[in-house]
C-alpha cells in the first residue's frame, strides 16, 4: 500500500490482540505487528518484494464495529480503531488447514513441517502426489527475478493445481544471469535443487540484462 492511503501523514492507532499499537503512514498490519514484535507467520512475504498474498498464512481477523473479516495482514493497511486478532478461531482454522494441505503439497520441506508442528498440525489427511516436492508456488522467486533483478528468467506455467514454476518450453533460459537471488529468497529451499533447470549456458551470456 502506498503512503497516499494515509493522507495526513498521521499515525493510525488500533489494537492487535488487545494491545494498543500505532502504525506509521504506509504500514500494513503485518509491518505494524512486526514492529511491535507480535508474531504472525508468513511464507510468501518478503521485505524486499511487493506483497503478493498467495500463502494466506498471515491472515488475521479484523473487527470494526460488529463486522469481522478475515484478511491477509501483509496486504491490508490498518484503519483507526480497528481490532485485529492474530489467532482467533477463524484465523486458526484457515492457518491449520493451509498447513495441513501444505504437508501434502510440499512433503519434503522441513521448514513447512516445523511451521505446521507449531500449530499442532503433524499429519495430513490429503493425498501426497510427489514425495520429493518442496515448492509451494509462493511466487517469491518469480517476483525477485522480475522486480529486483529485472531479467524475468522464470515464471509460472499453467494454472490451478497444475501451476508449476518453469521456464518457457522447460529449457534453461539464457536470460538468466545466474545471480542466485531466486534461490536466496525461496522459503523452502526448493529452488536450490532446480536452479539448473532455469539457468542456461553460462558461456552464452550476452549483455541483455546481465552485469552491465
Amino acid at each position: 500500500m502506498s503512503s497516499s492511503e494515509n493522507p495526513q501523514n498521521q499515525v493510525i492507532s488500533f489494537t492487535i490482540d488487545g494491545q494498543p499499537v500505532q502504525a506509521r503512514p504506509g504500514w500494513t498490519i503485518l509491518e505494524t505487528a512486526r514492529h511491535y514484535r507480535i508474531h504472525i507467520p508468513t511464507l510468501c512475504f518478503h521485505p524486499a518484494l511487493k506483497p503478493w498474498g498467495s500463502c494466506r498464512l498471515c491472515v488475521v481477523e479484523a473487527r470494526y464495529g460488529k463486522r469481522g473479516k478475515v484478511m491477509p495482514s501483509c496486504l491490508n493497511p490498518p484503519i483507526e480503531e480497528l481490532e485485529v486478532f492474530t489467532d482467533s478461531e477463524r484465523v486458526l482454522n484457515v492457518r491449520r488447514w493451509v498447513l495441513e494441505m501444505l504437508l501434502a503439497g510440499c512433503p519434503a520441506s522441513r521448514e513447512i513441517k516445523k511451521l505446521a508442528a507449531a500449530y499442532g498440525v503433524t499429519s495430513t489427511r490429503f493425498a501426497v502426489t510427489d514425495p520429493e516436492e518442496e515448492c509451494l508456488r509462493c511466487g517469491r522467486c518469480v517476483a525477485v527475478c522480475n522486480e529486483v533483478v529485472g531479467v524475468q528468467a522464470l515464471t509460472f506455467g499453467s494454472r490451478g493445481v497444475k501451476k508449476v514454476l518453469e521456464t518457457p518450453y522447460r529449457v534453461p533460459n539464457n536470460a538468466c544471469i545466474g545471480c542466485g537471488c531466486c534461490v536466496s529468497v525461496c522459503p523452502t529451499g526448493a529452488l536450490q535443487k532446480r536452479l539448473d533447470t532455469v539457468r542456461g549456458d553460462l558461456s552464452r551470456r550476452t549483455g541483455h540484462g546481465y552485469a552491465h
Binding site: Q152, A153, T155, F156, G157, R159, T167, P168, N173
Partner: peptide
C-alpha cells in the same frame, strides 16, 4: 516468460 505464462494459463 510472460507470453509463456499467458499461453499456458
Amino acid at each position: 516468460t510472460q507470453a509463456w505464462s499467458v499461453a499456458t494459463f
